[in-house]
């Protein structure tokens, strides 16, 4: 491949997939590290352009995953999806916010491995087969792990709800006074 053909192919790859790689990076290590992860991922893609498969997304996310493991382990460990999402929920209706927050808090309570499997499928739109490629296991193994992760998610969500029920928040008090259980997000 000539140099210009390589560049053209790389540019197409970048334009087509950078948003997906960015979304994955935020999910794994947060906004602060996402730009670095995207840059490092595509640097690897540039160096290994000949090896990028026809369906590049699982490969790219697999590279991004390695970048996270090797260079952003501390961020990945400390990541709170709930706090990452906080800016985005402003202005939403409170009960929707509460449900989303409970879901994110339950994801945060899981181990990074479970969280990764669940979000690869639910947020990044990967089939189980492609998600298995990202994490480097067989599809059958992936199903088993996803099943276990989902069970732990259910438990974590139940724990979140139990905790939320015990804490009388300002939201709940005002919700009780409203005809319907919705209030403005007044945080």
């Amino acid at each position: 491949m000539t140099h210009s053909a390589q560049r053209a192919r790389f540019t197409a790859l970048f334009d087509r997939h950078r948003r997906q790689v960015y979304a994955y990076a935020v999910t794994r290590a947060g906004r602060g590290a996402a730009d670095d992860i995207v840059n490092d991922t595509f640097l690897v893609a540039w160096r290994r352009l000949d090896a990028v498969p026809a369906d590049p997304l699982p490969w790219l996310l697999g590279v991004a995953r390695n970048v996270v493991h090797e260079q952003h382990r501390a961020e990945a460990r400390q990541l709170s999806l709930l706090s990452q999402a906080e800016a985005a929920v402003e202005g939403d209706v409170a009960d929707v916010v509460a449900e989303r927050s409970a879901t994110l808090a339950a994801l945060d309570a899981l181990g990074a491995a479970d969280r990764e499997l669940l979000t690869l499928v639910a947020w990044h739109g990967l089939s189980a087969r492609d998600a298995a490629k990202v994490v480097g296991c067989a599809t059958a193994t992936f199903f088993v792990r996803l099943h276990r992760a989902r069970n732990r998610f259910d438990n974590a969500l139940a724990a979140q709800s139990a905790m939320a029920a015990r804490i009388p928040s300002a939201h709940r008090r005002s919700a009780d006074e409203s005809p319907s259980p919705r209030v403005a997000a007044d945080r």
């Binding site: 950078r18 948003r19 730009d35 540039w46 160096r47 985005a88 989902r150």
Partner: peptide, 29 residues
């Protein structure tokens, strides 16, 4: 089923910040 429901809940909670990728041309390595 329970499995689909859990994944749907998670999908619904997808934070918008995931889509805040900055615009920019492909880096020139």
């Amino acid at each position: 089923n329970r499995h689909r429901r859990a994944l749907q809940l998670i999908a619904d909670a997808r934070p918008a910040v995931l889509d805040d990728a900055p615009d920019g041309p492909a880096p020139h390595f």
